[in-house]
Design a protein around this nucleic acid. Structure first.
Lengths: 259, 259
DNA sequence: CGACCCATTGACGGTGGTCAAGGGCTGTGG
DNA sequence: CCACAGCCCTTGACCACCGTCAATGGGTCG
């Protein structure tokens, strides 16, 4: 798979510096009771909103690029973003998908802050942009934010660890099965036992290419593995973006992981 | 590779509840100016040490097991620990290696705290054990600890993201090359440009099996990939546990990653 | 209706896994 | 000091899963 022709750098200029609304309206934001913003009450968030710049980017825009000097950090208000790392020859690994309430702007080393991953809008995306330089001050003013950020980072770390097991040791069909259950959990479809109800329909706003780059496979292998699970009657595939979980328990066994 | 015969569970009883010294001597601890403890001054750390239980475990002991109820968290004082996840059939993925100053005890969900990964001593290990229940109180007393923990979690997350690229998209030789450079950086052998000096000798206190389980390969493939880099004159292998970095820049090119 | 993009399916090949044998190092015991 | 056992690593032969290349089909938009 070669991505060089539409390498992210070629699209960069499309991304940022679009119309920024002067005042963010937090009370009607999808992220108001999600992620970082959930840590603050209305007064504090109104104060914080005054130093935020509301940004909109179209689908496909490169929001941040790995290795660039990290001048900002972002909080996603609306839309879905793919985070990824790429190799010089175009091979790409998607690190995760970020939605409303997620934080963007992790840097490799604090001394010379450069973004650790690239972020690309998969849909039209709205974000709040903050100045990185004021980050320390903001945390000092609102310690609850830092606590929430620790919670978020910890959660991301646990997900990353599961993904390492998937990428290092699972077969193609196991990767698909694991992914479907993780996505069901993310969509809050899971009962307290960790399994989604039988017959639940999972909506995947991803292309097969994104799925492949997330699971460390190729498009063709993803397609074949989905076909295999379909033949095993574990899932149904009414259309490209929907998957019916016919036998969640059997699917979990197929995923092998403790999820 | 089948690990069932010496599955971690079989070794569990060896691990914990060995002699605990009543008072920790922080001033002579390897971790005193590393990781979490570095956040506190001598008075605060002396206070904290009074609620710590100093534990020693022999090489090979299972310190924590994935999925167990998480009653404690640990700070490593001395020795090297391997963190891993395993599948029911024995496949194993090493998530990382933890040394003095590293924190152990990440849980999957805070509501029902269970360890996210297993941890096994690779050498005789000394740790401070804390009660998880008192964690919130400790953080309230010493906010600097929480800040340090966020720093640590962020750093781990960045490493995990690079490892995902490695596991999902790199060839065997690229994985070895990347690993060597990452390990050199960990050992503080790298100049400001990110490269270790030519001719530097890297000590790897790991078996080929650990390396394989860390890089998502088999022992045989690790052996062959090391042989390949040796034939390419990028590295020298004077003995099993030492690697000489003959051409660091070329090795970095071979690793492909931006490290 | 046609162009285009994406997904699926098939044929084939390669990287890395599996199985097996052999060699080197270390520790122990004669 | 040497012999031997045991473990780990290396090397070789073979195989399988997945990647590559190519053709076809289905859906959407102009």
């Amino acid at each position: 798979m070669v991505y060089l022709l539409d390498h992210p750098a070629a699209r960069r200029t499309r991304a940022i510096n679009l119309a920024a609304r002067p005042t963010a309206r937090c009370d009607e934001c999808d992220a108001r009771h999600n992620g970082l913003c959930d840590a603050l009450d209305d007064d504090d968030i109104a104060f914080l909103a005054r130093v935020a710049e509301r940004v909109r980017v179209p689908a496909g825009a490169l929001i941040i690029e790995e290795g660039e000097a990290a001048g900002s950090f972002f909080n996603i208000n609306k839309g879905l973003v793919r985070l990824f790392k790429a190799l010089p020859d175009g091979r790409r690994q998607i690190i995760g998908f970020a939605g409303a309430g997620h934080f963007l702007g992790l840097v490799k080393v604090a001394a010379d802050p450069r973004y650790a991953v690239s972020a690309e809008a998969m849909q039209p995306v709205e974000l709040c942009r903050f100045n990185r330089a004021s980050l320390a001050g903001v945390f000092a003013t609102f310690p609850a934010l830092e606590h929430k950020l620790l919670e978020a980072a910890t959660h991301e770390l646990v997900l990353a660890q599961s993904q390492m097991l998937l990428l290092g040791r699972k077969t193609a069909a196991e990767r698909i099965a694991s992914f479907l259950l993780t996505w069901a959990e993310r969509a809050d479809m899971c009962a307290p036992d960790g399994l989604p109800p039988a017959g639940a329909t999972l909506h995947l706003p991803l292309s097969r290419g994104d799925l492949a780059d997330y699971l460390g496979l190729t498009i063709e292998t993803v397609s074949r593995a989905i076909g295999q699970l379909k033949r095993e009657r574990l899932i149904g595939v009414p259309n490209i973006h929907d998957i019916v979980l016919l036998q969640p328990a059997a699917l979990a066994a197929r995923a092998d992981a403790a999820i």
